[in-house]
Design a protein around this nucleic acid. Structure first.
Length: 871
RNA sequence: GGGUAAUUAGCUCAACGGCUAGAGCGCUUGAUUCACAUUCAAGAGGUUGUAGGUUCGAAUCCUGCAUUACCCACCA
């Protein structure tokens, strides 16, 4: 088919994707004799739609996958979606509220049914969008975190950890979100700074500071630093009577190093039930703990007349009462950190609760023959180089996170998710307990109502997705057997690359390392590449609460094409660094796609009807200098792009490709070929340029490939092998370029139209007169030596101008000679330094010498020219 | 309080101890229907935040300072 004038992406993309998918090209084959390459897709949340962040990860991973296929590997890029427990649960609850009901009214079963219906619909939308982005993943292996087999893996790991003493149930202080009524992990708590009053209260003989007067009802311990001389007269354990909020209380003095003597008065009272520091102090000294606030965020009867009130409502009233009692010494505004749930932004209220935890400090993991704690293993795999994190600086962030890691609270009080695989029989404090992959036999067992943190199941993602789905139904197999009998697991695990955003380094990357090393004895991936976040053109975070800030990929694609979007994302990306994306960037890259298209269009016309002038391969006959030159450039481009991709330098790879296509191929070679078209070379260069560009811009390249009726699918082609060429001849083309460039430059300055060019003793020009004429937009080109000497050309050439015009050029020459003089001085002084000659590499010194020689020579030429111009 | 980065052309970013610090967008001048105005040609524009240091050589390494962003942490 003859290509139309402009590339209209929307006309081709969906057909092209269908072509790929039906070919089976994206399917991995564990039995293949090719080397294997594997990568898991970070499963998008089912509640969300594809945003720019997802567009970025699809683009980068697709580039990796397509490039690996081109290198002749069997590639598994495994897609999937995540059940996103808290986010989904919250969304459904909101829907219910809008319908005037709630989850308790409809019951657990109905709630789960509705949620399933909702996510199923949404999942389909996400998958459509991933395809629209061109994702070349293996859809036959699509997984979902709540799949039966994955659920079994979750249960198996829970049970295994339980038996190893890595999972325990206990009363610990946790982050409670009264809004969503669930616990969340430490990582899910987001802190914001707010100016709030800090109250100083009179507590018996002491003055204490607090930002939360509403928690002070139960306070019966005052804590001071053991070395604080101001309070040396009090002994640890001393008691005294205090007139307090609701009457007299007996207070006890506690000495603990957690108190900072410099803060306020150096005295504090503690609320162990609602503060982690206080909790730890209480634990150390065996103190009593009282609950003040309930799980809905309301005050309990201990608060007397304030019982039942919400905190915000109660606080001013309590302060008022303190004032009346004469207990309020002063209040002043101070910045204060408030914990919010990152999902839903509910204010976190620490609570002591009976929950399930993962012990990160117990040495129960066999790693490389040593029994270590989860923390130690997580640290070791990165320190030992089993896992490489790109960029490297995130290793430090990762270590810091490990150092501050507490036991991981994994139980959630929501219904959507993997249910805790524990059953209880009997009531009271100590029921009979059963921990198992499946429900216990017999009557009277009740399953724990809680579900597991989403990240617990995501932590297993690299391998739980590779478990054989049918074998997973056979519960006579142990988890170990199951893994060993799963062909995909044996072939594709550990995965090669994990490509994801740095913002989920802790949530996900670290947790995968934790769980996978423990269960499989293998790392989940060898390299973790962390990309930056996509921001708006103004540098703002794209957020749902500010819809104007969002550029929706699904709106960009129909207007500019998927490739334009992909290229725009690649053009701005460096590992770990956030980038800004706006319309201008997308337009610029749409233009690049159109450039490729028009190159193909020109070559199609040049090739005529008989497209396949040369069989695929390296046999082409080059005649002209330009032919050799472009093949040289093509081979350099191919090599550099290949290397940059191998090193995850996506941005660099694209830049090399971009300039090869636009500058070398379009602006020089195609223009040159108009004088002397070489169908074989044109064909060869186009074919291989398409291959190199394909991972970046798969749609336009494949569309061209199909329209030009090349064999098979471009997506199935291997990385180019460039035809042989003659290097010295390639170099000679650069002589022509230098002459052309200088002629153009001078002609522009002097406003000449089609001037004549003269040359003397220049066989290269002599043999390429037509070419020089065309490229340089020149009139006549012949042997002579008059007019204005083109001093920047590497051959002796002159532009035919009259004396008057030539004089106009004097100032340009004078300026240039001035600059040359400075250069010569600089080079001379560099060479004059003994240390330079001794220490710098030989090539560099030689290069400097050459430069100096050339600068001197050119300076001579210009002087001579100036002299001959006269005044 | 601890940490990580950023600071380079008007804007957005590259350059990871060695050519004259590059690119895209924008800007200036010119071209015109022969692949592409989603084009072509030519050009202007930078003392690399700041003060020192190491080195034959520094945007790059080190130290201090300034500004900004982010992450972590139990200052009540």
């Amino acid at each position: 088919m003859k290509l139309p004038k402009a590339y209209e992406a929307g006309q081709y993309e969906s057909d092209i994707y269908k072509l790929w998918e039906e070919s089976g090209l994206f399917q991995a084959d564990p039995n293949s004799s090719k080397p294997h390459f594997s990568m898991s897709m970070p499963p998008p949340n089912e509640t969300s739609v594809l945003h720019m962040g997802s567009a970025l990860f699809v683009t980068l991973q697709d580039i990796i996958a397509r490039h690996q296929r081109q290198l002749g590997k069997d590639v598994l890029w495994l897609p999937g979606t995540d059940h996103a427990a808290i986010a989904t649960n919250a969304l459904i609850e909101k829907q219910l509220a809008e319908q005037g009901t709630d989850k308790h009214k409809i019951g657990r079963e109905e709630f789960l049914k509705r949620t399933k219906e909702f996510v199923a619909a949404n999942r389909d939308a996400i998958i459509v969008q991933l395809r629209a982005m061109g994702a070349s993943c293996d859809w036959g292996r699509l997984r979902y975190t709540l799949d039966e087999a994955l659920n079994r893996c979750v249960n198996e790991v829970f049970v295994k950890m339980w038996h190893d003493g890595l999972i325990y149930r206990g009363h610990r202080i946790v982050n409670w979100d009264p809004k969503l009524e669930t616990t969340v992990s430490d990582d899910e708590v987001e802190r914001i700074e707010k100016n709030e009053p800090l109250y100083t209260l009179q507590y018996g003989p002491f003055q204490i500071a607090t930002a939360r007067p509403e928690t002070k009802f139960g306070d019966k311990y005052v804590v001071v630093h053991p070395d604080d001389k101001r309070y040396a007269q009090y002994e640890h354990g001393d008691t005294f009577e205090v007139d307090w909020l609701n009457g007299k209380v007996t207070a006890t003095v506690i000495k603990d190093e957690a108190v900072e003597p410099k803060f306020g008065t150096g005295v504090m009272t503690i609320t162990p039930w609602h503060d982690r520091t206080d909790f730890e102090i209480a634990e150390r000294h065996g103190l009593e703990k009282d609950q003040i606030i309930d799980l809905k965020g309301k005050l309990l009867p201990i608060a007397g007349e304030f019982a039942g009130m919400k905190i915000n409502e109660a606080r001013p009233k309590i302060v008022e009462k303190l004032d009346k009692l004469g207990l309020l010494v002063k209040m002043e505004d101070r910045p204060h950190n408030i914990g919010l749930n990152s999902r839903g932004k509910g204010v976190i209220e620490p609570q002591i609760m009976l929950q399930w935890f993962i012990d990160v400090n117990r040495p129960a993991v066999n790693w490389k023959g040593q029994l270590r704690s989860l923390k130690e293993v997580m640290r070791a795999v990165v320190e030992d180089g089993d896992i490489t994190i790109i960029p490297k600086r995130f290793e430090k962030t990762y270590y810091q996170w490990i150092d501050n890691l507490y036991d991981w609270c994994i139980s959630r009080q929501i219904w959507w998710g993997h249910r805790v695989p524990v059953w209880y029989k009997g009531k009271g404090d100590k029921p009979e307990i059963y921990v198992g992959v499946r429900a216990p036999k017999g009557d009277g067992w009740q399953q724990d109502p809680d579900t597991l943190d989403t990240w617990f199941s995501s932590a297993l993602w690299t391998w739980s997705t590779l478990v054989n789905q049918d074998l997973a139904k056979d519960y006579s197999l142990s988890l170990e057997d199951l893994l060993q009998k799963s062909g995909d697991f044996k072939t594709y695990h550990p995965t090669d690359v994990m490509e994801t955003g740095w913002d989920i380094l802790f949530f996900w990357v670290a947790r995968m390392i934790l769980a996978t090393t423990y269960v499989t004895g293998e790392v989940p991936f060898k390299t973790a590449y962390l990309h930056g976040l996509v921001r708006t053109e103004e540098g703002k975070k794209m957020s749902k609460s500010d819809p104007d800030s969002i550029i929706d990929p699904m709106e960009v694609i129909p207007e500019f094409g998927t490739d334009a979007l992909r290229l725009a994302l690649v053009a701005g990306t460096t590992a770990g660094t956030d980038q800004r994306v706006g319309k201008t960037k997308i337009v610029a890259n749409r233009n690049f796609c159109n450039k490729l298209w028009n190159i193909a269009r020109y070559i199609q016309e040049a090739l005529g009807e008989n497209l396949r002038v040369v069989p695929v391969g390296r046999r082409v006959t080059s005649k002209s200098l330009a032919n050799h030159w472009i093949l040289n450039k093509l081979s350099i481009c191919s090599e550099k792009v290949n290397k940059a991709l191998a090193n995850f330098k996506f941005h660099e790879a694209y830049e090399i490709l971009y300039h090869f296509v636009w500058d070398d191929l379009a602006d020089w070679y195609i223009e040159a070929s108009k004088t002397e078209p070489n169908r074989e070379v044109l064909n060869h260069v186009l074919e291989n340029t398409l291959k190199i560009a394909h991972p970046f811009a798969p749609f336009v390249t494949e569309t061209i490939w199909q329209n030009l009726e090349y064999d098979g699918l471009l997506a199935a082609q291997l990385w180019p092998e460039v035809a042989s060429f003659d290097k010295p001849k390639a170099k000679q083309f650069e002589v022509i370029q230098s002459v052309v460039a200088d002629a153009r430059r001078v002609a522009t300055i002097l406003e000449l139209k089609k001037p004549a060019l003269y040359y003397s003793k220049a066989p290269i020009l002599e043999a390429n007169i037509e070419l020089v004429k065309r490229l340089g937009r020149l009139g006549e080109v012949k042997a002579s030596s008059e007019g204005l000497r083109l001093v920047n050309a590497t051959e002796p050439v002159w532009l035919a101008v009259d004396k008057e015009q030539a004089r106009k050029y004097r100032s340009a020459l004078e300026k240039q000679i001035k600059e040359l003089k400075a250069d010569i001085e600089r080079l001379k002084s560099r060479l004059a330094s003994k240390n330079y000659k001794q220490n710098a590499p030989k090539e560099l010194v030689e290069q400097t010498e050459t430069e100096l020689k050339e600068a001197k020579k050119q300076s001579g030429t210009i002087k001579h020219e100036l002299d001959s111009l006269g005044n």
